[in-house]
Design a protein around this nucleic acid. Structure first.
Lengths: 197, 197
DNA sequence: GTATTTATTTAGCGATCACTATATAAATAC
DNA sequence: GTATTTATATAGTGATCGCTAAATAAATAC
């Protein structure tokens, strides 16, 4: 064991709790006091382990992004653009309606609307949201080369379209719309996937 | 003039200011002090004119819903389901990227993610968001009767799909995506509108 | 054993939260 | 004029915000 008094609590477990609270209430919607209580520790222990509220949020977000990122990493391996899109949308529905987590999506809802004090965090999240569309645009460009996507399609716009649907699915789930209905939405979106020449 | 000292400020003008602040920062993201300062009045005047923060928010929301509601009222008059959908999506893009207002959509972003203290407001907004899909579902059912929409389509699901796109467009605009890109998203969504028999 | 290091606890910092008590100012009613 | 009514301005309520100083507890190093 390392020098000094050992930590009483499991840091990853505590971080998981913080992640879920930020996921549900957003960065500004949960206080340090509430976080510490839910994590089963007192406030100074929270600060000594995680620095401050912003760093705790970012650490929780890193944990979240392992979940959220897998949707894209797995889906982009699909053989055709159509299968990629369907896999992403289906994965998003499963994520945003999974009863083991809060409804919605942390990267979309965690700091979308904030007070002036937290615009810094909002901008960080805005930037994070730009990565998946970039990945998708690259994948769709490849699909055009491989012939399973019409060359008339702009890969960037198609990626933005999928991201728009994903964002909408997160909002709908947060509003209380269930998995069944959202899967029907995905079915409609995929009906006559119109981009194969 | 009525009895008593007359109000120094224009109530509708002050409400317009409050609406924009709530629109940009959400219910919990702006304080009474900030609101009063921006409205050019002091705090007790705000309370005597509007009651409390929740009532002020709801009054601001009523003002907003005149803007947001017109999109649907106007669009539902279009002749075919396809034109209705296009008009709604185009109207949403214009609303959420209008430089005269904050980015995004107040009914979607105003209280989507809140602390436990404001779950009451969140639920009220969740309910408000259910009205447009109901209108759309009725209109799409009518379109099926009139023959410009396939009878295989579930009007409710199609309405939920359009609402999902609308929500996504609001999130994208709030994230900094511009009008041009969002109009391309709408174009993709409308490409080969797949629901005419 | 003592010294050092780190985590915990209690208690409290100044700032801001939504909201209001009190006094004063400005209008009408008579 | 006086009485009444309503809006204003000043100041301040208790509660909570993010965060921390100080003391104590529990481990290792030697």
């Amino acid at each position: 064991m390392t020098k000094g008094r050992p930590r009483k609590f499991d840091k990853e477990e505590a971080l998981e709790t913080a992640m879920k609270l930020f996921w549900q209430h957003g960065y500004e919607g949960v206080s340090i006091a509430k976080l510490a209580e839910a994590m089963g520790i007192n406030v100074p222990s929270l600060y000594s382990a995680f620095g401050n509220k912003e760093k705790l949020f970012m650490a929780a977000f890193d944990k979240y992004s392992l979940l959220g990122g897998h949707i894209y990493i797995d889906s982009l391996k699909q053989k055709t653009a159509r299968e990629v899109a369907y896999s992403i949308l289906k994965g998003e529905v499963e994520l945003v309606t999974n009863p083991e987590h809060p409804d919605g999506c942390m990267v979309i809802l965690g700091a979308l609307v904030t007070s002036s004090d937290s615009e810094h965090i909002k901008k960080r999240m805005d930037e994070m949201r730009q990565t998946p569309p970039k990945w998708m645009a690259e994948r769709f460009a490849q699909a055009i080369k491989e012939g399973d996507l019409s060359p008339e399609v702009d890969p960037k716009s198609l990626a933005c379209y999928i991201m728009t649907l994903n964002s909408g699915l997160a909002v709908q789930a947060k509003s209380g719309v269930g998995k069944k209905e959202l899967m029907k939405v995905v079915d409609i979106a995929m009906k006559n996937w119109p981009f194969v020449d």
